[in-house]
Nucleic acid binder design. Sequence first.
DNA 1: GAGATGTGCAATCTTTGAGTTGCACATGGA
DNA 2: TCCATGTGCAACTCAAAGATTGCACATCTC
Lengths: 111, 111
Amino acid sequence: MTAPALPVMCAALGDATRWEILTRLGEGPMSASALARVLPVSRQAIGKHLDVLREVGLVESEQRGREVVHLAVGARLGALARELDRIGRSWETRLLRVKELAERPEPDAVP
Amino acid sequence: MTAPALPVMCAALGDATRWEILTRLGEGPMSASALARVLPVSRQAIGKHLDVLREVGLVESEQRGREVVHLAVGARLGALARELDRIGRSWETRLLRVKELAERPEPDAVP
DNA sequence: GAGATGTGCAATCTTTGAGTTGCACATGGA
DNA sequence: TCCATGTGCAACTCAAAGATTGCACATCTC
């Protein structure tokens, strides 16, 4: 799967219920019904959240007998983290350059 | 400012227009009106997005004469990235442990 | 001082998304 | 075989979020 756009990835993580789900799935594989027993939402709602998370690669699902178990994919979260870190650094360096220019009184005009 | 909860941070980043805004602000300080001239949304809409971004610390604002200029805060994005990376790693290690147990045929019953 | 530009607040509209209920179907175990 | 459990699909409700328009006020510039 190709990496989804940043806003889509972040939107998938921008919901409290989905974080609850991810936290459980981070501890081990679970079925939608099992999640529904633990969390205060219906199985159908959880199913939709799992769709969203699977869409961006944060969750993988596997048929296991009668049920389907889901699991959180840490590697995908790590990839997102690296990308965000890269962007944050670029903002910082540009900020530094702007400040440097501001503090230098007469930086010479461009030839 | 104390770090906002993860879902809130991610929700702030989970919108395409806000990413547009952040991208511009990452290149240098801009006013809301200047952003509205560049982006295909009204100044008021941009103002609300800036509120959201400022709320989670991704943008800082400064009165400069008649106008208010805004700037993207890379450090905040870096902090989020580190936290996501930490969580992603924890998922991976748990996954490894589960697989280890699964591959070991008879790991002794709990006493 | 007059006009242009930038900002803030409020009311409104519209769409999206989270959540629910209901029903049909498959599958594992007694 | 019967029943409990798990899943999938569809229609519906409801609130929140993105976006717009309109107006009042401040401030820089000519």
